[in-house]
Computed example of a mutant assay.
Amino acid sequence: MIGHVSIGASIYHLLSYVLEDKKELSEEKKLALAASDHLQHSERAEVLEYNKCFGNKYELTEQFKDVSKLSSRIEKTMLHLSLRLAPGEQLTKAQLTDMGRACAKAFGVADHQYICVLHKDTKEQHIHVAANRVGFDGKVATDSNSYKRMAELCRKLEKQCGLQQVLSPRKFLSATDRQLPRHDSRKEKLKADIQQTLKQTSSYPAFEKQMKGLGYKILKGRGISFVDDKKVKFKGSEVGFSLTKIERILSLQQQLDAKRASQKNERLDDSATRTNNFKSAKSQQFNHETSFESVEKQITGLLGQLLTPEYTSDYRDPELIRQPKKKRKPGMRH
């Protein structure tokens, strides 16, 4: 069994993902895939359990939002858990529901709002748990040591259900898939590609065209996401380049290009003036160049700062890091 855990800020998008079919597939494509692989691509999601919530994605989103407001100290209020069985293994819906409950309990959201959903569009059975990290008491479920907890949970469930013990998730991948970069390697590659492209472009259309040339699909809305050639999706903010930051960098690049073009024109004008008044033209040229170099230095400095991504792979929400309290010695007064 392979487990996955992540947190996010968008309630609606997570609920949409677990409750709906893949958006990139048309109805014709779903039918064609179903005929070829004998899987269920249309209406792929079946809700196994609603816990302290109910309704469709819109109703669920409003309910989750209302409870999320009980805590103002975190932005990423959604917890996404998934479990995928090894090839050839099969469990009943009741067993899968119990697994979903075990997941919720292991991550401290058993009494929170969550839904457990079975997806039927893959050969291996797999479930998703979309949970609110904020409880009805306003307390937030921590995500510390999440990968370790998920690994321990998988090993425990494998023993309980008599499943194969997957000591390494990559064990059940094909030989080709094993050669693919790991998740973090993909992030590093995307980060480097964005960084290099931003250095070479000064407009959003040019940036998007060059990123597409590198094999990425761009999803732009309020934010920006990148999908690589293996359909792995990352938000720009995950690698330190949010849409706001990208637009800011491109704006500065445009300013720098405009300044350089202006400087070039001024040099041409100065050259023409120099034939009439050499000393005056030379003094004017020096002042222009000094002014340009000062502005160029400022813009280049800002660009350098912005092109350094904020992403770090070991990021932890500072709000979730509790400082240990110092123990008072006996007899000490307040």
Rank of each mutant, 00 (worst) to 15 (best):
R222Y: 06
S72G: 08
M332C: 07
A258N: 10
K23D: 06
M211N: 02
V295H: 10
I127K: 09
K233H: 05
Q210S: 13
L33H: 07
D193T: 03
Y50I: 05
H126K: 07
E46P: 05
P181S: 02
K245W: 00
K52A: 09
L15V: 11
K187W: 03
K231L: 12
M78A: 09
L79G: 02
Q323Y: 05
H38N: 15
L25I: 07
P324N: 09
I2Y: 05
E289G: 02
F136D: 06
T312K: 14
F286V: 08
S202N: 14
K191D: 01
S68M: 05
H126Q: 08
S10E: 06
S202P: 09
A102G: 09
G213K: 10
F64A: 06
D270M: 13
G301Q: 11
K23A: 15
L190C: 09
E89A: 05
S185I: 06
K297W: 04
D314E: 03
D317G: 08
L96D: 01
G301D: 03
A131I: 04
A34V: 09
R274H: 12
L320P: 03
K245F: 00
Q40I: 12
D257H: 06
K230S: 06
Q165F: 14
Q95R: 04
K235R: 15
R186E: 02
R328L: 12
Q254M: 04
S16P: 04
P309Y: 00
L19K: 13
C161A: 12
E158N: 11
A261R: 09
V67W: 02
C154E: 08
Y311K: 06
G304W: 00
P324Y: 03
S26Y: 04
K123I: 10
Q40Y: 04
K76V: 05
Q125T: 11
R84W: 03
R333N: 11
D317Y: 02
R133Q: 01
M99F: 14
H4C: 06
E89R: 07
K105A: 15
L48D: 01
S146P: 01
K245I: 00
R178I: 09
A281V: 03
V5P: 02
A34S: 15
R155I: 13
L219H: 14
A45D: 04
T61D: 02
L198F: 00
F207Y: 09
H126W: 07
K231D: 13
A281D: 00
K30E: 14
C116A: 13
R133A: 07
S203P: 07
D37G: 05
K120A: 10
G55D: 01
S26A: 06
